[in-house]
Design a protein around this nucleic acid. Sequence first.
DNA 1: TTGAAAGCGCTAACAA
DNA 2: TTGTTAGCGCTTTCAA
Lengths: 329, 329
Amino acid sequence: MPTVSDVAARAGVSTATVSRALNGKPTVDPDLAARVRQAADELGYQPNGPARNLRRQEAAVVALIISDVENPFFTAIARGVEDVAHEVGYSVVLCNSDESVEKENRYLDIAIQERVAGVILSPSGPTSTVAKLASRGTAYVAVDRPLPGQDSDVVLVDTRLAAREATAHLVAQGYERIGCITGPAGVRTADDRLAGYRDALKAARRRTPKLVRRTEYKAAGAHRAALDLLAQSEPPDALLIANSAMAVGVLQALQERGVRAGRDVGLVTFDDAPWAALVDPPLSVVAQPAYEIGAVAARLLLARIADPTRPPTATTLGARLIERASSRR
Amino acid sequence: MPTVSDVAARAGVSTATVSRALNGKPTVDPDLAARVRQAADELGYQPNGPARNLRRQEAAVVALIISDVENPFFTAIARGVEDVAHEVGYSVVLCNSDESVEKENRYLDIAIQERVAGVILSPSGPTSTVAKLASRGTAYVAVDRPLPGQDSDVVLVDTRLAAREATAHLVAQGYERIGCITGPAGVRTADDRLAGYRDALKAARRRTPKLVRRTEYKAAGAHRAALDLLAQSEPPDALLIANSAMAVGVLQALQERGVRAGRDVGLVTFDDAPWAALVDPPLSVVAQPAYEIGAVAARLLLARIADPTRPPTATTLGARLIERASSRR
DNA sequence: TTGAAAGCGCTAACAA
DNA sequence: TTGTTAGCGCTTTCAA
């Protein structure tokens, strides 16, 4: 594998000049620079990243730690981050914490060890160990969920309001016994969606029925929760579901029990998955601006890398309810 | 940020002993090792990855370059790769080439620069530049699609056979004008699925009608293709669709044109997406063993890293047809 | 504008 | 078993 020395020898210059030429420093004679570039090309020279990063004490890499690679909401965030980062020459490495605080912690360690320039993460639980980043001066931004007890940059969605509106919509459609299937306690989006649901019921002067279930943010958990709710003596006639993976589990449960979605049970779910309008009946959803969350987070991170002293900001984006047949009486 | 020297000073030993202790080398006194570990903990020491990798001339990292992060098939592969790699202490960095040969090439350069131990990729086009890896001795494995002109390890699905079976199933169900929407020419899976489709029609002594459309492997392209097919004077009465993203586009098109899936047009699509059984009507699919593809590829990569001289192998996994209502007359 | 040389933090010969 | 020391490949003073 060729090194700067090889390139230098071939171009008949010093390694310092090679470095300067290849990094586009203005203080190098154009002719020499051209000779260096040609030598590098001929040798198929690729700079040694670890050596460069060791010397520079920083890498043009940001780590993106998301809680579920199989969730379209998070992959859309990833697209937003990538597009912004690439524009300014940063690479993005994607890490899947799989909703596990342990894996998240492991990836945070790796991010520190690799001395990445910054980290964007959606915290998997209430006990994230991001404090490590702060104490080392590594820039980071939280997305989707705030970091407990951390005064960091954060990009959120006003998910409580969205949940409230979605629930109010179900009330307005005449549903009587509205249930809610949401994520684990301590995960902020799960708590907020539940709070918004309760806000709406309270505003409608409904007693909050025992129709709330909390489970992991995945299909399997929601499947169990839905079966449980359906087995009640007074089952719900509508459900607010906290993400699209859960919606899959709920729809399966309804199918298995012969309960017709949209007729027997009204549904609104978070996240406008590509398939949401294609199921029977088309799913009413709360569409979150996932791509934009990623793009905004990336811009905040870059700003913080450039100026570590800037005060932390909280950005809250809106979500919008898309009414389809699954919530129309 | 503390370094080995800091730890050494605090533990009262040399940097060499710190390195040995922290890396679990057997030639270090247990008491000393404990003292070193304690000192490291107290300082919150995290090894400097670039320095370590520079010295070791290799990193325990594999790069996984997939052609579409938003496609569940590829994220399932990622899960398989991660699980196997993590077992043996390797990290996985996920790169999204977005079906672009240019981005793929860029990530290959980054992988080389970072001196990763190996690369797993699903080539985005017929003109991949992986040869760079070979010439540098970096291990790599292709998944889903073989590398043109490369004699590398590869993990594939017998997708031609699967397409043939799926098409034969449509024939057996009595569909007369069976169309096919597949990916770009030169992408092996797209070509193979088309070939399998033609195999089946030929075996059934059908004339191959002008009902084939090729487009990018995404919803938008398939949407256009489906509208185009429906506008024919003799539109298809069944379709074989080459992946689940495309299925989304096709189902949208059918909806827009008021064509009832499963009744007016039979459908079989590749990939058993989580939502496939939930649409109306439930989608018949060719289920590919995505997770296993990833797991096998990771094991092959690790084997090749351990022994670069081992002969390349080609693994072909089977797919299975799941018949649901969308293809039943 | 260019070159010589130091040094980033770590690991691995080699010596003791 | 432990310490001393060289050096991985690069960038960046400092000198010329």
